[in-house]
Design a protein around this nucleic acid. Structure first.
Lengths: 217, 217, 217, 217
DNA sequence: CATGAATGAGGGTTCATTCAT
DNA sequence: AATGAATGAACCCTCATTCAT
């Protein structure tokens, strides 16, 4: 199970191996239950080397959070074309999000569960990333309102709640999709678009939101 | 802060004191960081008594989860009048949910964060409760579809995803409402109803969902 | 070598056993080289019990210092009759000091070497005891000067230096006497009285200080 | 603060840099708390080089002790003119001693505290130096006795004790003088000469020992 | 001459858990 | 019904020391 024990690697490489092992261990065992011993073994190095490079369990976990947060936000950013209409942008972002979380369950566990459960300084780290995503969604909603130029009264606090609800729904669906066999990232994104864009009321009335490439795939 | 040290209490009473202390400690410190020492002290009893009554840390935590899960589902059930139309039922349920979680932050922390973060057997315990709530929501959605008798093809898996999204959004909003000063349970429920029932698309077009008692309060 | 493993002792007794073991271990191995494992084993208990009662290695060492310092100052105080003339008081005090340090080499090692070598907060602890002894000696010197009513100019800073020198000489002689076979506490005290009271110059001229009970013993 | 990192120095120079760093680190942190890492960094070299040149922490510390012991004895020797009368020789020796220890607090800490606190083989190393100084003092006392040709019976063991007391007092005063602002090496030496040569009894009677150059300075 | 990479061994500390009363 | 006394096991972390280049 452990990495092949290759000796004398340059520091940068070893550090990535350690982070890989740490993300996996933290993601599966949880922050507190993960032991530095296990991480070191999985990384194929001795414990002192982990401390030499990453300083402490806390620092190591923080490094994991940062790496995974950066990877996730980057994946979403890369998946979105800012030239598209807002609903299309949201659709693309959700697809990228569900795809990335499905491919990195351990990283997602760290961001979604572990970091939030174990207080400061970890919660702040992940809150920063979350704020970035919420801001992106907020801006999409505001843009949509402007496009529709119908409801100039949409209060800021109201928008904040909506963005929070949307992001929360996405987070929950990610866990659900990961745990439910047969649910693809695409399906999860479609479900959420339907739910978020059209609302249950309209769905009931037979007016779902339609994926833009429904015909081609 | 700890309970007054009264001696020779009947078992049932002592057990509740212990669970109170445990919920508070687990909720604030987290499952792993909470120590049996602290719980026993907060409960005002000696450690062996905790073991005599509740067996182990794991069992104690499981008992906490069960108690809090039962309290939450009961609160929601009690808040809903099954004779009302579906959207009204959902509205009442959400209000009850946000009210209960705001009043029991430690219990909510246990259910929402701690139990899910620390794997089996706790995750299964809380998953059972969640399934109950998802089932309730699912049934609401199905009933709504029947009322609208428009879309008999609404696939079961699709409904499951929608329910999941709705519940996830609610969970996230609960944490957000607890952490954001000035957001009441009522407001959180209204935001979520808007989002879930009308959808962003309709909101943008000026067709929000209207709280049933908007005029009276 | 370790104490007989007696079970279920009252806390006060166990604590003294632990302090005994700790004084011996710290005295012989030194503060840093002593391991809590070794101390626990010598005390005949498990390590967690040592921590339960004494908190930490630092606290344990501090407790040792306090106990040994109290024992030493008490021994000196008990040996001195404040009604006697000053040189007699000094003589009795020195005898008590050398006797006590000879009988408690580990305690003396802790006070004289270990506590001073390992910085704060230990140095302050032993400095307090030393200040007490220096104050006692200073007061003797001042009293002697008053009795001789010859030198009203004896500056305070000068007296401080003399007291320091006397105490330092005593400390050194204690280690020397312990390490040199055949040197008794009595002889060490006599040598120091000679040195301190008469001075080398007078010794050379055949005017030593005479122990008060030279004839009787 | 660390030495400038100059490369490719001859071995002898590098060794002195290492010893400088080691003396400083051992003197300030203590033998056990000092880490080879810190010493190497302060010396501006890599750790393996320290091992290459000085073999082990123990050997490095021993080398420090030897160097500082040699420096101290050499300073005292250089300060004394063997042609002078014995009290003048002692006076000069003490001045040299207090001056040197005041200027080399780290070295003095190593000799006086660290080496003695951490057992063999270090204690033996510093004991050798101490024996040399005690021998010097002993010879002074014997010479003084011969000059006074009064007490040919001054037993050898008695002289040994006196020398020990004198050296011990000097050691204590050195630490005291270093720690007490405003006390110069000269004053410390004068205090000790007074104490040792005239004795408290004569001081009280107004017969102090008079520094030879009291008039000129 | 010099070092980046790496580790075996051990130390302080904490915790869930049990025994004897 | 209740507790004071006690521990096995594990965890985080550090350090002196060595290879391979």
């Amino acid at each position: 199970m452990g990495a092949v024990k290759t000796k004398r690697m340059p520091r940068a490489v070893r550090e990535q191996q350690m982070l890989d092992a740490a993300v996996r261990t933290f993601g599966q065992r949880g922050y507190m239950a993960a032991s530095m011993d296990e991480i070191a073994e999985l990384a194929g190095v001795s414990k002192p080397l982990v401390y030499l490079y990453l300083n402490s369990k806390e620092d190591l976990f923080t490094a994991c959070i940062r790496r995974e947060a950066a990877a996730l936000t980057e994946a979403v950013r890369a998946g979105v074309d800012p030239g598209l209409p807002t609903d299309r942008q949201l659709w693309e972002g959700l697809r990228a999000f569900f795809t990335h979380t499905a491919r990195n369950p351990d990283g997602w566990s760290i961001l979604h569960l572990q970091a939030r459960t174990h207080g400061e300084p970890f919660a702040a780290e992940v809150a920063a990333m979350r704020a970035e995503i919420v801001a992106f969604v907020t801006q999409l909603i505001v843009a949509a309102a402007r496009e529709a130029h119908h409801d100039p009264d949409l209060a800021e606090s109201e928008v904040a709640g909506l963005a929070e609800a949307l992001v929360g729904a996405a987070e929950s669906l990610a866990a659900w999709a990961n745990a439910t066999p047969g649910v693809t990232a695409r399906q999860a994104a479609a479900t959420l678009m339907n739910f978020a864009w059209s609302g249950l009321g309209n769905l009931m009335d037979g007016r779902p939101w339609t994926p833009p490439d429904a015909l081609t795939r």
